[in-house]
């Protein structure tokens, strides 16, 4: 065993360890400068130097890896937003987001959860909302679905349904779904590898043409069916019905709310509701309410 070295940060207790880890984390998680380097004034005296690298340079390896890894994750989760903003604006946005919202979860899957709410520009925000909904729909729980027969046997005054956790409802001011479809985003990846090393920031894929983002009021469902992700546009009445059910209304109250947004007659509307339920039960969207709720920050 070697003798203990003198250090201004002794490690005699758990609090000492926490302080050391807090210091190092603070150094790693501060934004890099414009050259992707650690800020010069960063103290690295808790790291040993060697014959090739100073304490600062050794700490900087970890700082760069931290930022490249997290930016890489957002790069993968928000490709359409990156296309819309362009590479440099996207990176600047992500850096500001991560500086204010460092990861608070053991899984990188949740890293971008707060990005939609962080974005001020409405077009970019709508694209981010849809991309975050895709992340959720990809691996959220799929509960046993209810079929039409299940629904027919219960009094609608008392029946409460839930939407599957992998079925997400969005109201948008832009046709973000069309934008995403046109750039051909794929969703079949995992985040963690056994190596955490990142040599450099990823160079942006070439974008041939940025598709237009049209302003349009869209009522959208992002859902998973047979483990594939889909978008489905709904009319306002159907979306409102589903949103009410999701939020805990009885079937009767949800239908009434939807009817108030409709211009159809009562009989036409009743017929329409039947068609909606036939379709949505076929897609497996309904399930029984679960004790746990799924608050998604959309």
């Amino acid at each position: 065993m070697r003798s203990a070295r003198s250090s201004s940060y002794p490690l005699a207790s758990l609090d000492d360890l926490r302080q050391l880890q807090t210091r190092m984390a603070a150094a790693l998680m501060q934004p890099l400068n414009r050259q992707d380097r650690l800020k010069r004034q960063t103290k690295a005296d808790f790291i040993k130097s060697n014959d090739r690298l100073s304490s600062f340079q050794r700490l900087e390896i970890y700082a760069r890896q931290y930022w490249f890894r997290l930016l890489d994750c957002l790069y993968d989760d928000y490709p359409a937003l990156r296309t819309y903003l362009g590479a440099s604006k996207f990176i600047r946005l992500c850096e500001s987001y991560l500086a204010k919202h460092p990861s608070s979860s053991w899984t990188l899957r949740n890293l971008g959860s707060g990005l939609p709410a962080f974005i001020k520009e409405s077009g970019a925000r709508d694209i981010a909302k849809v991309e975050w909904a895709q992340t959720l729909a990809f691996d959220e729980l799929g509960l046993p679905p209810l079929c039409m027969e299940d629904l027919m046997q219960v009094d609608p005054m008392h029946l409460r349904l839930s939407l599957q956790p992998c079925v997400l409802l969005l109201e948008l001011d832009h046709a973000a779904d069309r934008f995403i479809t046109s750039i051909g985003k794929s969703m079949f990846d995992t985040r963690a590898g056994a190596s955490q090393a990142k040599l450099s920031q990823r160079v942006d894929d070439p974008i041939l043409r940025r598709p237009p983002l049209k302003k349009e009021n869209v009522h959208l469902v992002v859902h998973r069916h047979q483990n594939q992700l889909y978008f489905k546009r709904l009319d306002r009445g159907a979306w409102s019905l589903l949103a009410s059910l999701r939020d805990g209304s009885t079937l009767q109250d949800a239908v009434q709310t939807a009817f108030e947004t409709s211009k159809s007659s009562a009989s036409e509307f009743a017929q329409q509701v039947q068609l909606w339920f036939a379709e949505y039960t076929q897609l497996g969207w309904f399930t029984l309410p679960q004790p746990q709720t799924y608050p998604h920050p959309l």
Partner: peptide
């Protein structure tokens, strides 16, 4: 290794300080 502190995650495999008290912990 360690990788997070005070609820903030680095998602890295950061080296440990090699001391007896840390080994015990």
């Amino acid at each position: 290794c360690w990788g997070s502190v005070n609820g903030r995650f680095s998602h890295d495999l950061l080296p440990m300080p090699y001391t007896m008290s840390v080994a015990k912990h």
